[in-house]
Design a protein around this nucleic acid. Structure first.
Lengths: 208, 208
DNA sequence: CCTACCGATCGGTAGG
DNA sequence: CCTACCGATCGGTAGG
């Protein structure tokens, strides 16, 4: 049954996500992943040709999904660079705060990939940076941003780094809500870009 | 000979730093570390009781050294919160840009520690955040900073996260000098804190 | 600091 | 003849 195949595969990917989040790809055994799904060790190889391929499919999916959301959020934000920038930052914050397992796995474990698989993921990561840098450069030209050193790539990198570690420490224990997080980080990012204190309208909290 | 013993021990730590930086603690074998020093596998246990203890001593040294530099830089900066903040940010940027192997190992591999060793390192990491948050809170009270949401810990965390990933991508290939890096990040951090555009004087590039 | 080796576990695959 | 596994074990390597 194709349905059963897909479900087992997705369960393996979901179990791998949690285990890789908690202890990392290299410290997680095939046995642990399959046992988390009630399978024995060999079952993994009905779905993936190797542990490495499972990692690639997981990490590629995480990056593809994130890029899909950033592209959609930027389109939906309209033509204003400030609105586009706020929308992109909101997507990254939401991803790292609400789906921190996937985000942390995506941001850390891609380093265990090699060859073309690594190159493919690095290309997506570069496009995500370029997307933010393009918006910053457009806003700098139109005068709504005032970038430190005039460097759009430099500011984009700093903003993404600031967002990228949220998944390391954010806990949805009620101390900070996702909405508070994304407002705080949009404000910080706008300050870094030398833009207005707030966007004209707050981006709708993205469904990442 | 104590000299030879010490030299071998330091060589093992230095080789481990490079290997952990390149591929991580879990993916590095004891054999690789010792072979990098021209030893066989068992030689490591003349200097460390286990691979875990080597990691602890390395990570503890990295954190202790960083805290020593931040304490000294803050004292040397005088009473102004803006000067203190700029000095602390400069230390963190210098550590991550100039000594990125040690910084990256310190920021990533401490997660493989457990028990009291982990607790000890986490305590230092908390003090480093508190140090920055204290300076931000003092500046907010005196009116030289205007923190997003009034949260000194939140801004401190964002600034440290922004600096913490420099070691992931910075290359001293001449595209960006350490001085350019530290000026860029001090400016970004001052914007995040809602402070003046630049410090009254640029901190001397710290010798981390 | 080396050689020799342990208990265990690694990722991956066999036949049924 | 298919799938989703099983118990058992492959060749190698881990930390100690």
């Amino acid at each position: 049954m194709t349905v059963v195949e897909t479900r087992s595969r997705d369960r393996l990917l979901a179990a791998a996500t949690t285990l890789f989040y908690e202890r990392g790809f290299l410290a997680t055994s095939v046995k642990e992943i399959t046992q988390a799904c009630g399978f024995t060790q060999g079952a993994l190889y009905n779905h993936f040709s190797s542990k490495d391929e499972l990692l690639y499919e997981l990490v590629l999916g995480i990056h593809t999904e994130l890029e899909r959301h950033t592209l959609r959020a930027r389109s939906a934000a309209g033509p204003d660079p400030v609105d586009q920038f706020a929308a992109l930052v909101a997507v990254h914050v939401a991803a790292h705060a609400q789906f921190r397992e996937r985000s942390r796995v995506g941001n850390h474990e891609y380093r265990s990939l090699t060859g073309e698989r690594l190159a493919h993921v690095l290309a997506i990561r570069r496009r995500l940076r370029d997307q933010l840098a393009d918006v910053l450069a457009a806003g700098d030209r139109s005068g709504v941003f005032h970038l430190v050193g005039g460097s759009a790539p430099g500011t984009a990198r700093a903003v993404l780094d600031m967002c990228g570690l949220i998944s390391e420490w954010f806990r949805d224990d009620g101390v900070l809500t996702p909405t508070e997080m994304h407002r705080r980080y949009v404000e910080l990012a706008l300050r870094m870009a030398g833009g207005p204190a707030t966007p004209r309208t707050w981006p709708v909290l993205p469904e990442v």
